[in-house]
Simulated scan of single mutants.
Amino acid sequence: MFVRFILVLFLFSAAGCVSTSAKRVNNSHLMISIPDARLRILEYHESGQYDRDVEAKTRKIEEVVKKAIADGVKYPAVIMSVEDVLVSTYNIRKKQGFADNSCARKALDYSVILGILPVIKPSVKVFESLLSRGIPVFIISHRPENLRVSILENLAGAGYSGWSGLYLLPPNHQDDSSGFYEEVRKGLHRTGINIVATVGAIPSDIAGEQTGTPILYPNYIYSLR
């Protein structure tokens, strides 16, 4: 099973060293090597289990929307994140060995600028299903506003169209984006929209108020699996 400390291992690896003076971890039976962690990520994603887990999440979205319609909820809507919900960062992260150093981040940023992140297929299916039911979808990203054109081109190239809004990080959230998603949701709620589901890839995406049903996609780096 993946565990959260995998990310810590990656960060140490990205820095190019692991301190030999570090205190011994008491729960050493939980530790796995960095190569083993990478292999587990590859196995999880490429075995098809990642896709199956994503499909399970999209079924949950459908269930939530069907219930909202049956319950007569007025102006229901769904919020979906961009990266690792609508499009995937897996291929570029794989090339960088799932590291989080400056080189890896620049490679990911470059892919975003080029608008070449590939579609997550179950997501585009549920996206189209929502629109066919008359459910507006609002898209949100941690990326800054100056990448709007690139993200629009990426979404269109991946097969997405017809969303009701795309919210990108404004300058006042550049240093800390943790409250941005909640701020957007509250703003939509004030207009009379009832958010019945918020779909994200990391916990902060679905934290806070006005989430409706929070739905967290599987994430091969941060997952508890």
Rank of each mutant, 00 (worst) to 15 (best):
I140N: 01
R4C: 07
A104H: 06
H142L: 06
F2M: 14
A99V: 04
L9S: 07
F138T: 05
L86W: 07
V112C: 04
K121V: 11
F127H: 09
S81V: 05
G134L: 11
S123V: 06
P136V: 04
A207G: 02
A68D: 02
I206G: 00
A77C: 13
M31A: 13
E83D: 15
A201L: 01
P35E: 11
P170C: 14
N172H: 15
A15S: 12
R38P: 04
S150Q: 04
S223P: 00
E62R: 15
D176G: 12
D205Q: 01
G187E: 10
V184E: 03
G157H: 05
R40F: 07
R133K: 13
P35N: 12
L166Y: 11
V119Y: 09
V25K: 08
H173G: 00
V3H: 15
P136F: 01
S33N: 10
P122G: 12
I139W: 05
V85H: 04
G179A: 03
Q210Y: 13
V85R: 10
E63K: 13
A14D: 03
G97F: 05
M80D: 04
V112S: 06
A107F: 04
L9Y: 02
D71P: 02
D36I: 09
L131R: 15
K106T: 12
L166E: 08
T213C: 06
R40Q: 13
P122V: 11
R190D: 14
R225N: 09
L130E: 04
H45K: 14
L130G: 04
M80G: 01
T58K: 02
V196P: 01
L155I: 08
V199S: 03
E209M: 05
N194C: 00
I120T: 10
S33M: 07
F127W: 14
D84L: 02
I69M: 12
V73R: 00
V54E: 02
I215T: 10
N27L: 14
L108N: 13
